[in-house]
């Protein structure tokens, strides 16, 4: 070994009150540098550009008719529904890429053990990872929606400004935090409770898209009556997004049942997290 000096610290270190911040910094950098994440973020934000162009054209009075002509008058926030839907869909796909890699992918390398032998509890470890996924998902919800909102306020004519009150920005924030927080909580709980990265990805995709397919089939065949829509996680998110963004339910079928279904999913996620925390502590 080289004779390099080993120096002692003048005072012994004190455990950080927020060790999850260090975890967040490290893993956020790691995730955001992944090629798959960069590509997905770029693709996810294509609608932002398209939306901005349309908003500009509408604002200049150069676009009449067509699917985007109703953008501002029909939605209080001036954000066309197709854009919102595409951002939520991007968030779901991004969650499938980012979430499982956070925990299940690192467990084999012993990264969990690395954290637990330091002044960090299993819950702080999970919280740090949840925060990483949630913040990345905000790049496909909060960031583009806010940009579109601000851009709309810049370009639209003064008489249409009334349709874009500043309260809309608060609604956007509430909606974005809700969707990102919800999705990241589910993928992190799956990742904490599961062992295989691929398995966790499959489970999330099944939960998100699988329930949508089952819901569509149920609606098509008439099974489940008006509650058939409640099976689909995307439909329920859609319902919630309408409630938050537009202050009205999008469908009358399931009504506030969406809140119950998503609440139940959140409860399952918490149970998954408890199992995961025990699993992590038992390294």
């Amino acid at each position: 070994m080289p004779a390099f000096p080993y120096e002692s610290l003048p005072t012994p270190p004190q455990p950080s009150p927020r060790p999850w911040l260090a975890l967040f910094g490290m893993y956020f950098r790691k995730q955001i540098r992944r090629k798959s994440v960069i590509i997905l973020l770029l693709i996810a934000n294509i609608p932002t550009v398209v939306g901005a162009v349309f908003l500009y054209l509408i604002g200049q009075g150069k676009l009449h008719g067509g699917p985007f002509s109703e953008v501002i008058p029909t939605i209080e926030l001036g954000l066309a529904r197709p854009f919102v839907d595409s951002f939520v869909l991007s968030a779901a796909i991004l969650a499938a890429v980012v979430g499982p890699a956070a925990l299940a992918g690192e467990r084999r390398a012993g990264a969990t053990h690395f954290h637990i032998i330091r002044p960090m509890s299993a819950w702080e470890f999970l919280f740090g990872h949840w925060l990483v996924v949630a913040v990345i998902l905000l790049f496909t919800t909060l960031v583009p929606l806010t940009m579109l909102f601000l851009f709309a306020r810049l370009v639209i004519s003064p008489e249409l400004l009334a349709a874009l009150p500043w309260i809309g920005l608060l609604r956007i924030m509430a909606f974005s935090f809700l969707v990102s927080g919800f999705m990241s909580l589910i993928v992190i709980s799956l990742s904490a409770a599961g062992n295989s990265r691929r398995g966790v990805t499959m489970l999330w995709l099944l939960l998100y898209f699988g329930t949508d397919i089952i819901g569509s089939i149920a609606r098509g065949t008439g099974l489940g009556g008006k509650f058939a829509r409640c099976i689909s996680v995307p439909e329920n998110l859609d319902q919630i997004s309408s409630l938050v963004l537009e202050n009205q339910l999008r469908h009358s079928d399931c009504g506030y049942g969406a809140v119950v279904v998503l609440g139940f999913l959140l409860l399952l996620s918490v149970l998954g997290l408890i199992r995961g925390a025990r699993h992590i502590a038992d390294v």
């Binding site: 270190p13 004190q14 455990p15 950080s16 060790p19 260090a22 975890l23 910094g25 490290m26 790691k30 992918g105 690192e106 390398a109 012993g110 990264a111 053990h113 690395f114 954290h115 032998i117 330091r118 002044p119 960090m120």
Partner: peptide, 23 residues
């Protein structure tokens, strides 16, 4: 057993260990 954090360099890994420990 192993306690690695994949995809980072040794200096990042060791500094990260120090950060979590309160440095």
């Amino acid at each position: 057993g192993e306690i690695l954090v994949p995809d980072i360099t040794a200096v990042q890994y060791t500094a990260y260990a120090g950060r979590i420990s309160g440095l």
